[in-house]
């Protein structure tokens, strides 16, 4: 999890079933990025784990860190990408569906904080590398098959 201000950009590489959540304040040109691995921190089997990888804890942490650094809570918007299913199995446990579950969880927690999702590129079966520029609020998404798209 990291926070940047313009002119710096923030990126994360090789998102598979993980979800990249960018929360930003366009006017203040500040943005934070969290890399979500699992939908819920109650899945943790060990107390002392990093909060940054669970949708529920990471989204709240991200927002409070942004606000601390000068972002206005009511102006926050989000863009999300990732949550792919890299391997297709006909049968599988709930954990195999982790991509879609991560996406659902991220959306739920953003909604509960009243943060509007203004762009999303989720699901599918391709890995993604994403880069966000707080100056323009554009999220660039690179995949192996489709090249670069902008949100």
């Amino acid at each position: 999890m990291n926070i940047v201000k313009a002119p710096y950009v923030i990126r994360t590489s090789g998102l598979g079933s993980c979800v990249g959540v960018v929360v930003f304040d366009q006017l203040q040109q500040i943005a934070g990025l969290a890399h979500i691995m699992l939908p819920d921190s109650s899945l943790a089997k060990n107390g002392s784990l990093s909060a940054a990888k669970y949708a529920d804890t990471a989204v709240y942490d991200l927002v409070s860190r942004l606000v601390k650094q000068g972002a206005r809570k009511t102006a926050l918007k989000a863009k999300i990408a990732g949550g792919a299913q890299m391997f297709q199995f006909t049968s599988g446990s709930e954990l195999m569906r982790i991509g879609p579950r991560n996406v659902e969880a991220v959306k739920k927690h953003l909604l509960s904080l009243r943060i509007e999702i203004v762009g999303e590129d989720v699901g599918g079966s391709s890995g993604r590398t994403i880069e966000f520029d707080p100056k323009t609020s554009i999220l660039a998404i690179k995949t192996v098959n489709k090249g670069i798209t902008y949100l």
Binding site: G16, C18, K45, M86
Partner: peptide, 17 residues
């Protein structure tokens, strides 16, 4: 695909522990 996206699939269970 990108190796990061592929390998991280193997981390799902592990990352709970």
């Amino acid at each position: 695909d990108m190796v990061g996206a592929i390998i991280s699939y193997g981390f799902i269970e592990l990352s709970q522990f």
